[in-house]
Lab assay of single mutants.
Amino acid sequence: MGSVRTNRYSIVSSEEDGMKLATMAVANGFGNGKSKVHTRQQCRSRFVKKDGHCNVQFINVGEKGQRYLADIFTTCVDIRWRWMLVIFCLAFVLSWLFFGCVFWLIALLHGDLDTDYKDDDDKSKVSKACVSEVNSFTAAFLFSIETQTTIGYGFRCVTDECPIAVFMVVFQSIVGCIIDAFIIGAVMAKMAKPKKRNETLVFSHNAVIAMRDGKLCLMWRVGNLRKSHLVEAHVRAQLLKSRITSEGEYIPLDQIDINVGFDSGIDRIFLVSPITIVHEIDEDSPLYDLSKQDIDNADFEIVVILEGMVEATAMTTQCRSSYLANEILWGHRYEPVLFEEKHYYKVDYSRFHKTYEVPNTPLCSARDLAEKKYILSNANSFCYENEVALTSKEEEEDSENGVPESTSTDSPPGIDLHNQASVPLEPRPLRRESEIGSRR
C-alpha cells in the first residue's frame, strides 16, 4: 500500500517518465508532432483561472445545437444578457408577425380586404367582416399587437362572423401568456443567479507553507467582502497533476483530494472575517514527500473551492481559484488583518494578500521532518523571529508614515537576534492585533 500511495502522490514527473511517455506515443502511432509532453521546463496551462473560470474549450460535440435547444431554459439562463435581450425582442416580434399574417390571411380569404370602410357607412358590411377595420397587412399586424398586449384601442375587434378568427384570438392570448411567463422566468432566474456573489468572495493571491502546531501546513486565505453571511460555508481543495499509471496509461489531469478537515468538520467555516484555511501535510497528503526545492521545480495546480448558500436567496454559490506551484510561498505567513478595537473588531483588507517571511522554516519535506531528519529550532526562537518579522513590518510602515526611528523597538546594537533566540524570552503579545485562523 505504501508503494502504491507514493506512486499515486508523486508530484514532480521525472525525466524517465517523460521519455517513457514519448516512447509510448511513438510506439502507439501518436508521434505526429502534435502531442505535447509536459516536462519541468514546460509548465501546463492553468486549468482553473484565478477568477474561477475553467480554462476549457469543448470541440467536436455531436448534436450540440439539439442538446442546447432541448434544455432551452438553461440555455437562456446561461447566455449573455445581450443575447437574452435579442431573444426577448424576437420572441414578441415574431409572435406578433405570425398572428398578424394569420389574421391577414383570414381577412384575405373572407374577402374583407376588398371592402373600403372609410367611404361605406353600411354597418351590415362591417358585421360581415371577420375582424372589423382590418383591410391590410398593417392593420392585421396592429390588431395582433393589440390582442397579445391587451391594449385594446377599440377600432379593431373580432366579430362572430368567422369562428376561426375567434379561435385565433383565444389562441394568441394563451401563447402570449406562455411567452411572458417564459421570458420573465428566465430573466428573473438569470438575475437571481448567485454567480455575481463570487465577486465579493476573495482568495489570497498566494498560498503559503509554514509551520503550525509543530507541523508543516499548506495555507491559503479566504474572505467575504459583504456583511451578509454565506450560510453553510465549506471549503474543498484538489491537486491536479499528470501521472502515468503502473500499466503505462497517461492521465493528463489526475485529481487528488486535499484534506482540509472534512473528517473532523473544520472544513465548515464561519466566514465573517478572513480565515486562513489549513491543510496539514501528513502522510496522507500529496505534498508529504515534497521539499522546498521540489515545490520550486514541480508542475501541478491546486484548485480551491468555497461553497455556501447566499443568505438573501438561499441559492448555492461556488467560488473557485487555483494556485500553481510557483504561487506557493515556502516559509511565509499571512499578515494579520483582524484588529481588536474598543467595542468592535476591524478588518483591514489592505493586508489581505500580504505575507511575511518566517525565518528558520524547515526546507525539507514533511516526511523528513516526521522522521527527525531535520532538527527544528527552539520553539522560543521560532516565536521570537516570528515577532521580529512582524515588528520589522510595523517599523517599515512607521518610517513610511514619517514616525521617528527613535520610537521604534530596535534591538541594541551589536546583538545578533538569531543568537539571542536560544535565550528564554518573556511572551510578547501583539500590541493591538490578533489573527483569527482556522485551528486544527
Rank of each mutant, 00 (worst) to 15 (best):
I179H: 11
T245V: 12
G185L: 12
E199H: 13
Q57K: 12
L142V: 05
I164P: 03
F47M: 13
P427E: 03
L94N: 01
E426V: 06
T23Q: 10
N401K: 08
S3T: 06
C364S: 06
D180V: 10
R236H: 05
R243C: 05
A22S: 13
S3R: 02
L338M: 12
F143P: 00
V175W: 08
Q148I: 02
I209Q: 01
K64I: 11
S45Q: 14
R197K: 11
H332N: 03
L201V: 07
V134W: 01
I178C: 13
A25M: 08
G185V: 03
I415A: 11
D263M: 09
S204C: 08
C76I: 15
D51A: 12
G414H: 11
A421Y: 05
F300P: 00
G31D: 13
V272A: 14
G33D: 14
G154W: 02
Y68D: 05
L417V: 13
M168Q: 01
R40H: 13
Y250E: 15
I164Y: 08
S144R: 00
Q255C: 08
T74A: 14
L105G: 11
E433W: 06
V158A: 04
V169D: 01
G18C: 04
I375T: 14
R80I: 05
P194S: 06
F30E: 15
D348V: 01
F203S: 01
N378Q: 09
P412E: 14
R197A: 12
K193A: 08
V86R: 03
V222I: 09
R40C: 04
V423M: 13
T200F: 06
R46E: 02
E357V: 08
G176A: 05
P252Q: 09
E335D: 08
P163M: 11
I174Q: 03
E199W: 08
I79K: 09
T313S: 08
F137A: 07
E394F: 04
V304W: 08
L363Y: 09
S365C: 10
W96Y: 02
Y250K: 15
S228V: 12
L142I: 02
A314R: 10
A314C: 14
I269G: 11
I269D: 04
E16D: 07
N206M: 06
G185N: 06
Q172K: 02
L105V: 11
F30Y: 11
N297K: 04
N55C: 05
W81V: 05
F103H: 06
V169N: 02
V134F: 01
D410I: 06
F339S: 08
E400F: 10
G261M: 08
L109M: 11
G33E: 07
K34R: 12
T409Y: 09
V235W: 03
L97P: 00
K354Q: 14
G62D: 10
F203T: 03
H205C: 06
T138Q: 05
I151N: 05
I72W: 06
V12E: 15
V102A: 10
G100C: 02
D119S: 01
A421M: 13
R351E: 15
R8T: 07
F103Y: 08
L338I: 14
V310C: 12
A366Q: 06
S95V: 15
F155C: 04
E397R: 10
S242E: 12
Y9A: 15
L324E: 03
A129G: 09
A140R: 00
K342C: 05
P274M: 07
E387Y: 02
H110I: 00
T149W: 02
Q66G: 07
G29A: 13
D294E: 05
P424F: 13
R156D: 02
I269H: 11
N60M: 06
L376K: 06
V303A: 09
R197W: 07
D263V: 10
C54K: 15
Q57W: 05
L240S: 03
Y374T: 14
C217I: 05
T115Y: 07
Y153S: 13
N259T: 10
L90I: 06
S35N: 06
P362N: 00
T147A: 03
R432W: 06
M309G: 13
Q255D: 03
R44W: 04
L240R: 03
H343V: 06
N386L: 02
D299C: 04
Q318V: 09
R8N: 10
F141E: 01
V202D: 08
M19A: 09
R428E: 15
V337A: 11
K50V: 02
L306V: 11
F58K: 15
G414I: 09
K50R: 11
I256E: 11
A165D: 02
T115C: 04
F352K: 01
D160E: 09
K373Q: 14
E311W: 04
F339K: 12
K373S: 14
F137C: 03
A325P: 07
E161W: 06
Y68E: 11
E435A: 08
E16R: 05
R40S: 14
I183D: 02
I266Y: 13
N60A: 10
A298W: 05
E327M: 01
S321H: 14
S408Y: 07
G29M: 04
G2V: 06
T409S: 08
S434G: 13
I184G: 09
Q42V: 10
I11Q: 07
V278D: 00
F73A: 14
I145P: 01
E397C: 08
D299G: 06
R226M: 07
N198W: 05
S365A: 05
T6A: 08
N135Y: 12
N55M: 07
S285P: 00
V388I: 14
F141N: 03
R226V: 14
W330S: 01
L430P: 07
A325K: 03
H229G: 06
I277G: 01
Q41R: 07
A165C: 02
C101G: 15
Y344L: 12
D121P: 15
